[in-house]
């Protein structure tokens, strides 16, 4: 099943973006074939509730898991309700993160790993 990765750039060599809701783009990737597409995040510009808007938006891509740095409580709730696994604390190169995911090195989190509004100002290099 496809996975979504919050990305700092439009390629597998870009870094994982630590932000979820306010992330500019996602990489939607099939871990078997490593085929991917880049999805500009329409949810990021929301005045409020960017995490919710973003989660609803990428859920439509039919994904099974999200790899990101930080995910707040609202987005986590939406993703969980849609049956999407949320894997937080992911950083570094996207290709390497996907390899770690495939080898089962990540476990999904049952709850948000950051508080409300966390990503409102988080930069790309924390």
């Amino acid at each position: 099943m496809n996975i979504a990765i919050s990305a700092s750039g439009p390629s597998l060599d870009a870094q994982v973006n630590p932000r979820f809701g306010r992330c500019e783009q996602f990489i939607i990737l099939d871990p078997e074939t490593m085929q991917f597409k880049v999805l500009a995040n329409t949810g990021q510009s929301a005045g409020g509730g960017a995490g919710i808007a973003t989660a609803q938006y990428i859920v439509k891509e039919g994904i099974g898991a999200v790899l990101t740095g930080n995910c707040g409580p609202n987005a986590h709730q939406v993703l969980s309700a849609a049956g999407v696994k949320v894997i937080t604390g992911v950083s570094g190169n996207i290709r390497e993160a996907v390899e770690l995911y495939k080898s089962g090195n990540y476990s999904s989190s049952d709850q948000a790993n950051v508080g409300d509004h966390f990503g409102m100002s988080k930069g790309s290099n924390r």
Binding site: G43, A46, G47, G48, G49, A50, I52, A53, A55, Q56, V59, N74, Q77, V78, A81, A82, G83, D116
Partner: peptide
């Protein structure tokens, strides 16, 4: 409802409806 909400305060996922009163 979710489509109409300008503030992302209500989300529909499959057969679950989530509301976010703080938004």
């Amino acid at each position: 409802c979710s489509e109409a909400c300008a503030f992302n305060a209500i989300a529909v996922l499959g057969d679950t409806v989530l509301t976010f009163p703080e938004l």
